[in-house]
Design a protein around this nucleic acid. Structure first.
Lengths: 144, 144
DNA sequence: ATAATAAAAGATAAAACTATCTTTAATTTA
DNA sequence: TAAATTAAAGATAGTTTTATCTTTTATTAT
C-alpha cells in the first residue's frame, strides 16, 4: 500500500507525538528503537519530514525531534504525500498514463469507490487521533 | 497498489480473453503491443501465469496464449495472488510482523474496512466481466 | 572558548524490481 | 524430415528502493 519509507514515517510521527508532550524531544536512536526501524534509514526519513515542516528538530545536547500543537493536526494523508507523493491520488491501478472518467481502464470504476474511501480516511485521521489510542496500551508501533 | 508486473498481468489476462474468442490464440508480440508493455518482460509474466494455470499456451506455428471457458472465470484476486502473493491479504499497513485484532497497529481498524472492500471487489470481479466492457469500446488497456 | 551532543548531509552499498537480450525446446506445416 | 514459428528458459543489465557508514554543522553546557 505504502512504501517502507512511508510506513516508517507514519510510525515515527505517531511515536514522536507520543513522546513530545511537555516540550520533550526525542533523539533519532529512540525513534528508531521505538518503531523497530533501522536507525540511519530512519534518520533520512526524519530529515525529509523536518524539511517539509511536518516535524521540528533541534541540534545539539538535549536536541532531538518534537511536534508542536499545530504539527499534531497533521493528517496521515499529509505524511503519505510528503514521502510517497500523490500516487494514490492520481495513479491508474493498471498503470495507464491517462485514466479518467472519459478514458477509463477496465477496472477504473470498480476502484473509484475504494480509492475514495481510502483517501477520505487518511485525510480525516490526524496524528493527534492516535495519541489517545497509544496511551490506552492496546495499540502497538512494533512487535515483541 | 499493485506491482508493475501485476498491472501487466491483469491487462494481459483481459487482452487475451478478449482475443481468444473462437479458439483463437495470441502471440506475445500482440499481447505486449495491445497492453503497452515491454515484450520480453511481458513474456516472463505470461510464463508465470501459464505455470500457475491461469492461462494456456501452445508452442509452435499458430501457437500462442489463450483462455478456455474456465479461465474466464478467473478473478482479479487470483491474478494478484499469483503475481504479488498474499500481501494485500496479510500485510500490516505499517509493516508490523504481527498485526491483528488483538495486537493491532494504530491504524489497523481504520484500514480494516478499506481492505475488506478492496478484497471483496477483486474477488467478485472476473476476467469475463471485463470482456463486455471492452467490446463496448469505452474502456482502454492502453493510451493513444 | 572548548568539549560534548545530536541532527544534517554526503557517500556508498545491498537488495528488489523492472527490463532486455539470447538460446533452447516444442509444435506445426510443407 | 526439414524449416518455420512461437513459447520457455537462461543470462545479463539498468533502475529504484532500502539500508548503512562517515563526515559536517549547529547547539548547549562547562
Amino acid at each position: 500500500m505504502f512504501s517502507k519509507s512511508c510506513e516508517y514515517a507514519i510510525k515515527a510521527m505517531i511515536f514522536v507525538a507520543q513522546k513530545s508532550k511537555d516540550d520533550n524531544r526525542v533523539g533519532i536512536k529512540a525513534i528508531a528503537k521505538g518503531t523497530d526501524a533501522p536507525e540511519h534509514f530512519m534518520a533520512k526519513i526524519m530529515q525529509d519530514l523536518s524539511r517539509r515542516k511536518l516535524i521540528h528538530s533541534v541540534k545539539g545536547p538535549n536536541g532531538g525531534f518534537y511536534m508542536d500543537k499545530a504539527d499534531l493536526k497533521t493528517s496521515i494523508a499529509s505524511i503519505v504525500k510528503a514521502i510517497d507523493g500523490e500516487v494514490i491520488y492520481t495513479d491508474c491501478v493498471l498503470g495507464l498514463k491517462v485514466c479518467s472518467e472519459k478514458n477509463p481502464c477496465p477496472v477504473h470504476f470498480e476502484f473509484k469507490e475504494i480509492k475514495k474511501n481510502l483517501i477520505k480516511m487518511i485525510e480525516n485521521n490526524t496524528i493527534a487521533d492516535f495519541n489517545d489510542k497509544l496511551d490506552s496500551g492496546k495499540f502497538f508501533l512494533k512487535n515483541k
